[in-house]
Amino acid sequence: MRVEISVESLWGVRVAVAAGAARVELCAGLSDGGLTPSVGLIEAAAEIAEVHVLVRPRPGGFVYSRDEMGLIVRDIAVAREHGAAGVVVGALTEEGAVDDHCAAFVEAAEGMHTTFHRAIDVSADSRRALDRIAALGFTRVLTSGRCRSALDGAPLIKDLAARTAVEVMACGGVRAANAARVLAATGVRDLHAAPRRPVGTAPGGEVSYAGVGVPAGHDHFETDPDEVAALCAFQTE
């Protein structure tokens, strides 16, 4: 069983490496669902870990303009240039199908791993989307089975994993406490998690002045080393 930890800072990368995570998904803006990280962060992270860079040019849905598609291709090239081992990308048509421009993403990522992200969970048909993802040559797909949690989406995740040679990685509320149940229910061997905890103190200790959803008295989230260690320890059992 392999664990991928999603992080948005060099601290998070170091936490994942120390815990023995198989891979690191590197993002910015996890409170916005994850965005493309800076070049400096990619470069620094790639020096210490196997880094798979999320390439997502903006928050919101996955139907992109021509300019945004071009930017994704450029960012894939930048990630490669600065040491990334893989990229995490995806795009949909207005009808909810996998966009044919994804072929250009795979081509730009030649030699790197390619993960189709949770756009599959808001596609019109996950099974049909997976067939197209496989035909395009993606390495793996990240899914919660169209639910908030991998346990709730387990029947679909299991079906997808049995459908294709593409690696299916389960996500959605995955923690050490439920990892065994997720594995048993889905049949996958790749788990993805982004354990975070609120840190810092806002002025006066009463209100938050930063990231979405940060509790009062805190100013940002950071990777939770205890939960990452517990999950990655399970990986080696």
Rank of each mutant, 00 (worst) to 15 (best):
R58G: 04
A135H: 07
L151D: 11
V51S: 00
E8S: 15
S9C: 08
I76E: 13
A119N: 09
A109E: 04
T186K: 12
Y64E: 00
D219V: 15
S9R: 03
S65T: 14
S31L: 08
L156V: 13
V3G: 09
A180E: 13
G111T: 06
E107N: 09
D121P: 14
S65A: 10
V122C: 14
H192R: 05
V228Y: 00
D152V: 11
V24I: 13
V228T: 02
A129W: 08
A194P: 09
D224E: 02
A108C: 07
L156A: 09
S208F: 06
G172F: 06
G137T: 09
L151W: 11
H218A: 03
M1L: 13
V53W: 00
A84M: 09
R14G: 01
A28S: 05
S31K: 15
A170H: 10
E227C: 07
L136H: 03
A103P: 02
V141R: 02
V17I: 07
L142H: 01
R14N: 10
H220D: 08
T93G: 05
V174M: 12
I76R: 10
G145K: 04
E43D: 14
A91K: 00
G111P: 07
D125N: 14
C27W: 01
M169T: 06
M69T: 12
A19W: 10
K158M: 14
P198L: 00
D152Q: 13
F105V: 08
D226Q: 12
I72D: 01
L54K: 00
L151V: 12
R175T: 12
E222N: 04
P225S: 01
F105H: 03
G20M: 03
G70N: 10
A16V: 10
L10S: 02
E81A: 15
L191P: 11
G70D: 11
F116P: 01
V228G: 01
R148G: 11
L160R: 07
I157A: 05
E25G: 08
M69Y: 13
L30W: 00
S126A: 15
V87H: 01
G90F: 15
A18D: 14
P203W: 00
D125F: 14
V17Q: 15
H117C: 13
A109N: 02
G137C: 07
E222V: 05
V182R: 03
I157V: 14
F138M: 07
R23A: 11
R2G: 10
P215C: 10
N178E: 11
V122P: 12
H117M: 11
G60K: 08
G83L: 09
E237I: 13
P195H: 05
V24L: 13
F116A: 04
L191F: 08
C232E: 08
F105L: 09
C102N: 10
G83F: 07
A210H: 14
P37E: 00
A49P: 01
G145V: 09
H101S: 15
V15H: 06
R189P: 09
K158C: 15
R80G: 05
R127P: 03
V188S: 06
E94G: 10
A193V: 06
R58Q: 06
V24S: 14
D125T: 06
V53R: 02
G200Q: 12
V7G: 14
G204I: 09
R189L: 13
G20Y: 02
A46P: 05
G217E: 05
A91Y: 02
